[in-house]
Design a protein around this nucleic acid. Sequence first.
DNA 1: TATATATTGACAAAATTATCACAATGTTAT
DNA 2: ATAACATTGTGATAATTTTGTCAATATATA
Lengths: 210, 210
Amino acid sequence: MSKNDGVSNSVIKRLPRYYRFLGELKNKGIVRISSKDLSERMGLTASQIRQDLNCFGGFGQQGYGYNIESLYTEIGKILGVDKTRKAILIGAGNLGKAVALHMSFEARGFNLIGIFDKNPALSGQMIRGIPVRHTDGIFDFCKDNNPDVAVLCIPSVAAESLAPQLIQLGIKGFWNFSHYDISANHPNVAVENVHLSDSLMTLSYRVSNL
Amino acid sequence: MSKNDGVSNSVIKRLPRYYRFLGELKNKGIVRISSKDLSERMGLTASQIRQDLNCFGGFGQQGYGYNIESLYTEIGKILGVDKTRKAILIGAGNLGKAVALHMSFEARGFNLIGIFDKNPALSGQMIRGIPVRHTDGIFDFCKDNNPDVAVLCIPSVAAESLAPQLIQLGIKGFWNFSHYDISANHPNVAVENVHLSDSLMTLSYRVSNL
DNA sequence: TATATATTGACAAAATTATCACAATGTTAT
DNA sequence: ATAACATTGTGATAATTTTGTCAATATATA
């Protein structure tokens, strides 16, 4: 266990946003920032920012604030974007293809090394310079290449049957776009569920209750 | 203000998941369920489920539990999926196209009535039976059709400049796939941010700290 | 160099969220 | 019809998360 475990979910979910804002400030050439200034830009309290960051270490300096460049780098390390983990994408339909083409995996600590689809018509097609392989080949591919995470852009039923097999093959994390809730069933595996339908219904609720 | 405002964010974010699980149970032909049974399937506590539901009314019956069909319908009403709100999609690139083709807008209370892209080469192309229009036409289109929500699949810079204009034109909600945080700047408008990059970095953190 | 100012890190307090526990009450079986 | 059982809704309690406060300390200025 590293020193930074036991950090609450709420904090973890804010880290990428800090990273994003700091990246923008860095690109603007701004060198330093106080928690107060950052809090105003982000719509948070300064206290929360300081407390969040202090979960991982004292990155600031009294009377000065935080050095943007170095805080950006530190948060990047905390998030693990300096690592390069191998990722495979399963499901090359509309959504899978869009995720493959749209996301900067490399900037987020991942290297997309394989794409799979059960539709034989897609086999051989190139997406982002990566050939689409038939789903049947996943298991051999995993044994040979040991990917760390799987991006699931497949229907729930397929995800439900595939997830346990992938875990057996050493997959340690899922970026799950299917409707199936992986986390509810497999502990000790990292899961990030992206339930777009849930998100859209949340919007529906919010619009209905303005 | 309706009787169900003041409901906390945490509760609201769980509602679509309840809806999803109840929908599945309904499809399996199961008629009733207790909070205890549901809690085991969902990985929550029974108490939380009961308390969440009681924010909106007493849908259960002592000694019996909840009727799945009627609870499903009730949560659907709470979420507003029985309404039909008009939605426009802005940005018909990889992600925009995938969202248009992949999502069941109709099942979530929305009707996609227009798609826009600034690339003239896409104009006229049909996606899901809807023609792609040039972005320049958004304003007239909004005046004529009064869409309720906008789905933004465009770069941050475009989102930043477009959002205030769309609010002026009467847009009440954003499903925002861009990196720009709309909510931080415009109160009284519903915003659901889908920050895929943030999500991927959260996964990176989780995999790094297993 | 001395003084005024700014800002962190840490701890305390407040607010919010989740869990517990049980009386009330409907259901089921005999 | 009656008794045994199941399960809700709710108020109390516990846990977590956010916010407030301030001494400590670095920076900036004259």
